[in-house]
Each structure stands twice: as C-alpha cells, then as structure tokens.
Design a protein around this nucleic acid. Sequence first.
RNA 1: GCCGAUGUGGUGAAAUGGUAAACACAGCGGACUUAAAAUCCGCUGGGAGGAAACUCCCUUGCCGGUUCGAGUCCGGCCAUCGGCACCA
Length: 920
Amino acid sequence: MSSEQRKAFPFSEFEPKWQGEWEASKAYRTPNPGDADFDASKPKYFVLDMFPYPSGNGLHVGHPEGYTATDIIGRFKKMNGFNVLHPMGWDAFGLPAEQYAIKTGTHPRVTTEANVANFTKQLKSLGFAYDWDREVNTTDPGYFKWTQWIFLKLYNSYVGDDGKAHPISELEAQGLSREEIDHRRLAYVSEAPVNWCPQLGTVLANEEVVDGKSEVGGFPVERRPMRQWMLRITAFAERLVSDLDGLDWPESIKMLQTDWIGRSEGAYVKFNVEWPTCNGKPSGNPWAPPTIEVFTTRPDTLFGAEYLVLAPDHPTSTYLTSWLTTFLHTWPKGISDKWKGEVTEAQALPGLAVQAYREQAMKKSERERQQEGGRHKTGVFTGLYARNPVAPSKLIPVWIADYVLAGYGTGAIMAVPAHDDRDFEFAQKFELPITQVVQPPEGKDWQGFTDNGMAVNSGFLNGLPTAEAKKKITAWLEEKGLGKGTTNFKLRDWLFSRQRYWGEPFPIVWENGQHRGLAESELPLLPPTLEDFKPTGTPEPPLSKATDWVQYSATAKRELNTMPQWAGSCWYYLRYCDARNTERFVGVEAEKYWMTGKCSVPSAQCSDSEKLSTPTLSTEHSAPKPGGVDLYVGGTEHAVLHLLYARFWHKVLFDLGYVSTPEPFQRLVNQGLILGEDGQKMSKSRGNVVNPDDVVREYGADALRLYEMFMGPLEQVKPWSMKGVEGVYRFLARVWRLVMEVDDEGVWSLSKALQDVPANKQLTKALHETIKKCGEDIEKLSFNTAISQMMVCTNAFTGAEVKPAGAIVTFLKVLSPFAPHLAEELNAQIRAKFPALAAKRFLSDETWPAYDPAALIEDEVEVVFQVNGKLRDKARVPIQATKEEIEKIALASARVQEFMEGKPAKKIIVVPGKLVNVVV
RNA sequence: GCCGAUGUGGUGAAAUGGUAAACACAGCGGACUUAAAAUCCGCUGGGAGGAAACUCCCUUGCCGGUUCGAGUCCGGCCAUCGGCACCA
C-alpha cells in the first residue's frame, strides 16, 4: 500500500500536531508534593512500565503493548481524579553498546545517546502521556551517583538477628574487628568459584548462565575461582518468599520466585567418621577424624541412612584425600572394584582413587554435568566409615559423588536409598543396602517412595506420621547435640561484579590489601575515558587500562570491576518520584507520597488551614498495601531476576529507613509476547519483524495503539496481523466520519448531520453502556472488550440520521485514553461550532463521564424458554414482570407445550430477565 | 521428571453456572461507480429435511461426574507453550 493513497482520515496531520501541543503545554506534567500546583487532596496512582534498554534496533511492536496499556490506565485514572505518576526512562548501561564500541571504536556514551534520542522520538510519536520531566537514564552521572550511593549503603550494612539490615556502625560500636565486620557486610568480597566467560571477558551471575552458556551471546562459561563482589541476598531469602503474600502478582510469577528461592525445612545432622583400625588399634595417626554435617529435609528417615556422600569440592573431601594418601594404604576387605572409581590405574589405593575421581569431577563443566550423559550417577568410596547417630552400632560407608552439590546445604548428604530417587538410583548401581523406613499408603511400593507416610524400622519413631517423626527426631538431635532443625534455600548470593567498561564503577578503593568505601562527597565516581574497550583477555577488567584513573592515591588503587546491568534497574522507580533531586536519591516527601499516598506537605494552592489538616488519603481506609507502585507492567522475562533484585534492594532501603514500604511493586501484570504474522517469535532471521514506525506511517499512532489492545487479552501470547490493524483503522475512520464529512475535493469539514440535539433513547443506552463497560474493563485491563464495546457504540451512532454532538463528545472522552489524538482532534473540531458542548482544553483534563443506570434499563427484556434445558422459545417480557407472570407466559407458549408433550411440569426454574426452564 | 499456563468457528477472540461464537479479520452476495478502490447494507460453526418461510440434530481438546441447566465447577486423560531441572 503506498503512502500516496488517500487516508481514511488525516491522522498524519493531527497526530504530530497534538503531540506538539501536549508537549508545549506540558499537559502531562505531574506536580510533586511541594510544587505550587500540587493537589494533596487527590489520591495518587503510580503506574510503571519496565523501562527499556535503548538498543540500536529501536522499538519493536512488543514495547508499545505494555506502554499503551499503562497509558490507558494512567489517562483513565487522571480523568478519575488521581494524581498520576507515569514516567519513562532508560536502562542504558549494558553489553551491546560496549561490544559495538569494541567493533567500531565509537564510545558507548555516543551510541547510547543516539539510541536514546531514537527511542524518545519513537515513543513520542505514539502519544504516550509520560511526564518527560522525570525521564531517568541509568548512565547519567546524576543517576548513577545514587546507584553508587545505594551500593555504599549495602557495603556499610549487615543483617542483624532480627533479620533486618542495620548500619555497620552498630557492629563497630560493639567492638567487632575489621575482619569480623567485613564478614557480615551485605556487599562483600568472595573468592568463590564463579562463571567465567572468556568470550565476553567477564564473570556472570548464575542466573545469566543458561545450559552452561552465557545468556547473552551463548558463549561457553567455565567455573574458576576469582575475587568478586557479592551481595548478601540470601539473608533476605525468607522475607523475599513470605512477603510475596501481600502482593497482587500473578500466582505463576509468585510461584516462579518461590521456586527460585527454593525454601526447604529440614535439619543438620552430624556423623562422625572413624579412622580404620589395624588389629583392633587405631591406625596410628595424629589427624583428628572429621565430623560430617549433612543437611536433610527428611530427618525422619535417619534410621534408613545407608551411606554418606560428600561433594567432590567439599573441604572435608580435600581433607580426607590428604589423609587417605598419607595413611591408608589398603582398601577394606572385600570391596568391589565398582566402588573404586572408573580410573582403573588409580584403583590400587583409596587415596589415588579418590584423587582421580575428584579431578575428573571438578573438570566437568556445569554444562557437561547437566547434559544427558552427565546425569548418570558416578562416585567413589573413600574406604572410610561413619557412625549413624541414631544407630551407633551401625557403620555406614562414606562416598564422594558429584550428584551432591557443594553449594547447597552443607555440601554433604545422608543417603536414604529407599526413599530418595537419586540415592535409590545410586544404591542400585553400587549395590548398597536399601532399608525401608517409611510405610507408604496402601497399594504403593515402599522402594523409591518419597512422599509422606509412617515411620517403620525406625526405633522410637515407629508408627509416627512423617511430619511428627520429623519433629520428634529433630528435637532428639537437638537435645543430644547431634544436629538441629534448620531452613535452607536454593538461592545463592548475588555475584555483583563484572569485568566490563560500560557499567557503574564501584565506589571502592583498595589500600594495603583492604577495601574501603569512598566518601559520599566523592560521588558520582565517573568511569575513566578509554579509547580501548577490549577485554584484556584475562580476568583483569578493562578499567585496568586507565592507569591514571586506577591510582586513587600514592598508596591506594580503585576497584576495577563494574556493576552488572541489573544495578540501575533495582531502584529506578524510586528515582521517578523525584528525578531531579541533587541532594538525595529521592526526596523524603516525594517518596512517601508516591509510594504510600500519604502526604504531610500541605497543598500549596489551598491555603486555608482547614483543608490542610484533612487531606484525603487514598490508602487511609483500605488495608495497607506493602507495595508502593500501584501497577507495574512488563514482560515475564524479568519474573525472577530483576523483580527479585529490586525487591532485595528495596527491603534494605526499607530497613535502613530510606523508603516507606516493605515492597516496591504492589500489582504486577505481564504482557504477553507478540509473535510475527507466521505465529513464530519475531526475529530478524525469520524476517517477520514488524516495525512500529511503519505501522504509524500507514495507519497512525492511534491505530497502532488500538490494535495492540484489540488483539486479545493483555497477558496472552498472540500473533500480529496487519489485517487486524486495518480493522481498527477502519473503526477509527468510522468515528471520524461521525463528526466529519468530505467534499468532492477531498476536504474535510464538520458533518452537517452533527447537531446540538439530545440523543434518542437507543443511542443514550448505547452510550451509557459504553461508559459503564469501558470504565469497568479498563480497571480489569480488559482493553480488547472495551474496544469492542466502543465499536458497538460507534456502529449505533453511524446508523443514526442525526448525530447528537453532546453525546459524541461524551463518547470521545471514553475513547480518548485509547486513541488520544483522534479524540482530541474531533473534540477541537466540534468545539469550533459547538463551544458549549466540547471540552475546553484537552480531553485528558476532563472528568471521566458518569453513566446513568436509568439509561441502561429497557422496558422489555427477552426471556428464553427452555424445556429440559433445551432452548425452545423466546419472548419479550416487561422488565418488571414477576416470576409468576413470566412462568405463565412460558407455559402458554405453543412451542413449550409442544415439547412438554402433554407431560406435567416436574419443576420450573425462573430466572427473572433471563430464562424459564421447564422440567418434565 | 517436577511446577505452572493454555486448548472455543477458516483467523484474532467474547461469554457473574443461564440464548456458545459478541466485536473484528477473512470469505460470499448486494448498493454506489463507466470501472476499481473506499464506503454502506446483508449472509457467513457443522449436519439433516424443505421449493421456501422454517424446523430438527450435533458442536467449546478427549472421557466421566455434579446440576433443572456446564465453555465455565469437580475427577481422570491428551496436546501445545513457558519455567525449573541431581537443591537432598
């Protein structure tokens, strides 16, 4: 279709015009508490989009899906008397700009600025009611100054016994040593093994590694120990799970986070290893036999523990290997070769076999371990035995196997083959004993039964159901000092440093091998200017190339790592509340108002003290909500990472008294992915990508907005259809022609059918139904059904000879959140002839129309008559007809009588205004 | 394997336990036009009967249940998509 073709309505003229007017008059500026035009008597509504990474590709049609939804909500809430905060910004640090810099030498700042300019232009062409004065950019020094500031808060905090973050100064006051304090910081340095990606030249968080490859680029990732900054998110694991309860999030997302955090209750149990004896005497060595502490969720099965397993990289594995190599020169009698590992040459001695197995296991990458072949169980017997604490007479073998992970629990397990799938598989392979200790319900095999049942063969636990057995054994272990109840989490601490250039530098310097935070006054710490962004090829970050910058003082050097991209997005919603504040990351009053709705600053415009003392608060009478942002819309891809990290930071800031709510986001909605016309995921390689700019050029911004909402439910995955765009475009054209008509020259003028007359009964009903349904549907985010109702209404008006101008203006108010340009233009056209009927300024300044319930009521309704549940007849019945009257009419129906076949009615169900069902 | 979501016309979809398929797209027919586009009007789930008006039967992935009545509630399957995946 060529752009020469005459347009069905002149959107390409009036859309830019109104965008210009809105911008010039700051129509969507939102005043803050303390501003002259701030009205504290209004409730607040904070509606947030997940801010985009401004990529070089520009917007794709997935972006405007969520953005249109929030725009409609924001405009609707504003018309309903809310102070609406609806901002936009840029998550602009990140790898693509840096890799582009490596390729072309263009500084990431230049690329980022160009991309931001392009995104801004594109977003503005869609007519979103953002308050652009609040725009944030994570790469702006005025922004990342505060990202660094929050990092320092983490660095200078610890979690106390109350489970809350406290300033580190409390520990200093208690006289703790430097080392003890460093050990408790929420931001700490760790030497743990990390995911190193040579191609990207950086380490990655566990979450950024998918199937042993980097999530970005799909490059291989290897494990290697490196000195890294970690954030102690695990200290908040419990609260991150339990606080989900109060949030209006999709259950599936809550589930995803809960699973990710992976809370499980169980117990630690201590097993003592015994050195082998030689002719009844200890085999004569000075090393202490170790105690192996295991974590189990099934302490009730302790009597069934048949062997222990240590992770290959468990410290006790290392200790035992040394001991075996030094002291144990023989296997216990009668050990099968199977138990001695797969390396034949090493089977001669336990020390050799164990050493060979560990080397093999630790060489295996995460990827190899997860692949099919890597999943079959391997392991090696250490030649040593430990005592089961509940059955001291029983010695059980100690194994090393890589199906036990060092990073979870204690890195060691007690194996109960009868009631754990993995242990069962292992025991079968190595012919280890399998003892039943849980009695399953009738009809189930006890072998491999992992659910709850009743304890058997378990001494003092016998006969107890699993839950009670757990309690009893845990109490017993605690009493004897052999173990204790505990809770474990799958969640690991957050690896927070990256070896990249284009990220926030850490506000940290190193001196004499110790780290220290910069003073607040030294922020923001800008990255150095670099010509060469290439990774060094070693774990040394690119910032090391800025030799002057690195040298903080004669004796101190700067931290060379930068923060991950998640950092900036952890708190941007807070910055929106007060985006230009230079004194604080967010002003106290602004944060309090936008996050809680409470306002202690008087409205500047209302000077009478009576009004000041009684501000109406939106949250005052309802149950307090833990989350601050009223509605957060974005993709499911951030279900765990971003949303978990942001919640973590928010809780730290909450504990330290910097924010007012325990949670950031009250209501979360995930928009569904938009697929290409072929039903496949949009991608350049498939050639099915739809560019929103093209759609705007052909059909206009309103048509794009409307189509994105008309496609189907917001949360659903759905394919694009250009024919569908044309459909809503035709609808908009029909609305246009309610008001405008065209002459032979193609010049549009106000339609002569448009008159200042009241709408007739039928049109009034259609209009008020539309007001009602659209209002309700917007609240439910059911935009597709709201639009179809507007279509019904428009069709009714199209069929009318005379178009009642006042009713059409009311309709335009309802349409305006969806198609703001068209609604605004038609209102202005109507205003030229009927100034009294139209909105004075912008439709967004108008109040959402109220519907008249009386207008919805009809004199007669259609009632259907069923016989035995099958539809047989219908009749129009007066609305006020009684049950008895309706029943009489139904029974009088010839068709009803025909199908009753002369039988008497057994039962008659009458639903007034709906139906009559006669059962014979 | 485990957890979750979703299955309705040719297509996107709609339906507080009460007329299944609203609203659109595509298709077909008509009006307007020299013609086309645009626009407007009508038809459009399947099957059977009838010249026709019309009438009947079937239909919400499959099987069962609850109910006067089930797309909707319950139980069991199947398929597709998403997440997790040796977490003891």
